[in-house]
Amino acid sequence: MELFKMAKEAMSMRSKFSEMDKKLKAHILDIEYKGIKIKVNAKNEFLELSIPDDLLKESKDKIEKVVLNAFSEASKKSQEVMAEEAKKITGGLKIPGM
Rank of each mutant, 00 (worst) to 15 (best):
E2A: 06
E2W: 05
L3G: 01
L3Y: 12
L3M: 15
L3H: 10
F4T: 03
K5W: 09
M6E: 14
K8R: 12
E9P: 04
E9L: 13
A10W: 08
A10E: 13
M11D: 03
M11E: 13
S12V: 05
S12W: 02
M13G: 01
R14G: 06
R14T: 09
S15V: 07
S15K: 15
K16S: 15
K16I: 01
F17P: 11
S18T: 06
S18E: 15
S18L: 13
E19I: 06
E19P: 00
E19V: 04
M20T: 08
M20R: 12
K22Y: 02
K23C: 05
K23V: 05
K23A: 09
L24A: 14
A26Q: 14
H27G: 01
H27W: 07
H27A: 12
L29E: 13
D30L: 08
D30N: 14
I31K: 12
I31Q: 10
E32T: 09
E32H: 07
Y33F: 15
Y33C: 02
Y33T: 04
K34P: 00
K34F: 01
G35Y: 07
I36P: 03
K37D: 01
K39C: 01
V40H: 09
V40P: 02
N41G: 04
K43D: 14
K43H: 07
N44T: 08
N44C: 13
E45H: 03
F46V: 04
L47N: 03
L47Q: 08
L47P: 00
E48V: 00
E48Q: 11
S50R: 12
S50N: 11
S50H: 10
I51Q: 06
D54F: 11
D54G: 00
L55W: 03
L55S: 05
L55M: 12
L55F: 03
E58Q: 15
E58V: 00
K60C: 01
K60E: 14
K60S: 08
K60T: 07
D61G: 09
K62H: 13
K62Y: 15
I63W: 05
I63N: 06
E64W: 03
K65I: 07
K65D: 15
V66F: 14
V66P: 06
L68G: 10
N69V: 00
N69W: 06
N69H: 11
A70L: 06
F71S: 02
S72W: 01
S72T: 05
S72M: 10
S75R: 15
K76Y: 10
K77P: 05
K77W: 07
K77L: 15
E80T: 11
E80L: 13
E80H: 06
V81W: 12
V81H: 13
M82I: 00
A83V: 02
E84Y: 07
E84F: 09
E85G: 06
K87G: 04
K88A: 09
K88L: 13
I89T: 02
T90C: 04
G91C: 07
G91M: 07
G92K: 08
G92V: 06
L93H: 08
L93R: 10
L93K: 13
K94D: 13
I95Q: 02
I95A: 03
I95Y: 02
I95C: 06
P96Q: 13
P96A: 15
P96W: 10
G97M: 09
M98H: 08
M98E: 14
